[in-house]
Amino acid sequence: MIGAKGLISLRKGISRGLQGWASELKFTFKILKRDRTGLVGLGIIVFFALMAAIGPEVYPLEMMPHPEDRFLPPSLEHPLGTDFAGRDTLAQIIHGSRSVMAVAFLTGLFVVLISIVLGISSGYIGGKFDMLMMRIVDVFLTIPSFPLLVIIAASVNRTLSPVEVALIIAAVEWAGLTRAIRSQVLSIREENYIESARCLGLGAFHIIFNEIFPSLKPYIAMNLCLTIVSAIYSQVGLYFLGVMPYTSVNWGTMLNIALYRQSGLLNRKVWPYLFSPVICVVLVQTGFILFLHTLEEIFNPRLRSEEA
């Protein structure tokens, strides 16, 4: 039985992999249709992804001050009102979403790539290499990541591109997923189908990518969501504290300006400008968490609602 499973996964070529993807997608949508919170989550993610992708092209940003338009309340012309210098708040939110989403997805990508390479090799090779890797992982898990991030970001003396910001955040946050993937690999390695693959004389490369990796996919997908959530936290936080130079418009920068330069605490006119990024951050994070819930249900049948 188990040997047969090994043979099947062995025959799985690239074309079958693609078919698998298609059926997985179909299955995902089936669950999403039933699970409305997950659909809401996906909707929010798609909304902000679109805002980041095409918003800035459609809705121009003009940073020229118009002192006569200071703190206008929301209107048709300025849907979210204007800031302290008479600039449109919605334009800043839309243009800010691009850097927020870009950094979030890039960080997710980097963390996942680093963790896959290090986690799988550590779990598969084992021995001294594994021991050394795990000591390093332990250290990175212990050092409080946000203060470390602050120190690193503050010592870079120039403006950073989204890729660079994402690399810095990934450098601080890779350890958790690496350790998780490594322990998954450790338990998968003991499965019978891996042993039969070994008996068939299949190479390590084949075993890692065709036998072990597919069972890690759900795990990685869920952690990608979590990494994105924490990347948004870190990045908006860094701009909020004013650690990194204000290059472009970012939601964190807006929060910082509203609170510490425009006395957003006392002046109610600042509220549209202050709460726009607040609501956006809450929405994006909620979207990813709701979607994560559905992913958990998709990959873990035991969690599926009874009516399934």
Partner: peptide, 9 residues
């Protein structure tokens, strides 16, 4: 949801 909302928000 509350777990994923940043402290600063």
């Amino acid at each position: 949801i509350s777990r994923s909302i940043p402290h600063y928000i």
